[in-house]
Write a protein that binds this DNA or RNA. Structure first.
Length: 359
DNA sequence: AAAACGGGGGC
DNA sequence: GCCCCAGTTTT
């Protein structure tokens, strides 16, 4: 494809974007902090899921200083249910670093941005181009798909060499001074027209210049990445009441659902016996479990929990002081803790059930 | 290079 | 219900 054609397509994409861009909250601001927040939320997450969180997040943390100066608990309470909680912690960590090292102003160059926690090649390119006008590409999954089809690139778009090739093709499309608009145009096209399956080529501004379309190859380009087989992990949780309060346990600061509050439980034990032993060993909690009161399955990206939930009754004489690592909260105060969506079936069961277990 | 890390939407 | 999606960090 000639340089002149590429330049023409870049201008075409920007013009298409001006008239077809969805009206999204983060497109109404030029505040680098707010653009940055949106890009982090949009990592691995669809626009529709992000929108309600974005407004609430900025209401709670209107500025970089507000985010840097608040607690991780307050952060998790707002991020609860959005998933990939590590990116939230890295966002806050980066905000503190920007406050300490850059006087609260984000670096304007992609190299400086990329040194911050949670800022990979994509996010650094997106913030640099959209917020600061830097002429660099921002290759997310949508852009990679559009570019792979436009140039009919064979092979899976995953290897380091392949990613460099896609980034170079994307950079070549940038009209002078229009990097932010071009990058967003590619993302918008991938999200609304150049869909993974059944793309709407009839609506595409690239029209006859798309190689994959001309070849009738949009179904096999790009080649889908291989997926790991999900592992199944039996799990069990306990709903333990004491004096009108419920026990919650905090997850470890790293790993799955890190730092979130769950009903106390154990992965790898789908029955009361081992779970009772775990509650005694880990929390000093002496309960007899009666259950299951509820069963649910919840799928994660590369693992799958098949969980049971048991109702618990405290044995006589066991007070909360002996329960290590647990908090006791009223039902009405459950939502003050960051509880992941994986435990929504338990919360719904609690809401629906009029009676409870009493010590 | 491969695995870990959530949740929501499509079919 | 199962499959799909796809940035960054860690291993």
């Amino acid at each position: 494809m000639s340089r002149a054609t590429v330049a023409r397509l870049g201008r075409l994409l920007v013009r298409w974007y001006r008239t077809h861009a969805r009206d999204l909250p983060w497109r109404r601001t030029r505040d680098p902090y707010r653009i940055w927040v949106s890009e982090v939320m949009l990592q691995q997450t669809r626009v529709k899921a992000v929108v309600p969180y974005y407004g609430r997040f900025l209401e709670r943390f209107p500025t970089l200083e507000a985010l840097a100066g608040s607690s991780e608990e307050a952060l998790m309470a707002v991020w609860q249910g959005l998933g990939y909680y590590g990116r939230a912690r890295r966002l806050q960590e980066a905000a503190r670093e920007v406050r300490a090292r850059y006087g609260g102003r984000l670096p304007a160059e992609p190299e400086g941005l990329a040194r911050l926690p949670g800022m990979g090649a994509y996010t650094a390119g997106a913030v640099a181009s959209i917020a600061f006008g830097a002429e660099v590409p921002a290759v997310d999954g949508n852009v990679a798909r559009v570019i792979a089809r436009l140039h009919a690139l064979e092979g899976p778009v995953g290897s380091a060499a392949e990613r460099r090739a896609v980034a170079a093709r994307a950079a070549a499309l940038i009209p002078r001074g229009q990097a932010g608009a071009l990058n967003q145009a590619l993302m918008e096209l991938g999200a609304t027209v150049c869909l993974p399956r059944r793309p709407r080529c009839d609506l595409c501004p690239l029209g006859g210049d798309c190689r994959a379309r001309a070849l009738g190859a949009t179904g096999r380009i790009p080649e889908p990445a291989r997926r790991a087989t999900p592992r199944r992990v039996p799990a069990a949780f306990a709903v333990v009441h004491r004096g009108g309060r419920l026990a919650l346990a905090r997850r470890a600061p790293r790993g799955l659902l890190a730092g979130l509050w769950l009903f106390p439980g154990l992965e790898g034990a789908g029955e009361p016996g081992p779970l009772e032993g775990h509650l005694r060993a880990a929390h000093g909690l002496d309960v007899r479990l009666e259950g299951p009161v509820l069963e649910f399955r919840h799928a994660f990206s590369h693992r799958r929990w098949e969980a049971s939930v048991y109702g618990g009754r405290l044995a006589a004489g066991q007070g909360p002081r002996r329960c290590r690592g647990l908090v006791w909260v009223r039902r009405s105060e459950l939502d003050r803790h960051a509880i992941p969506s994986a435990h929504r079936p338990i919360l719904e069961w609690l809401r629906a059930s009029q009676r409870g277990f009493r010590a």
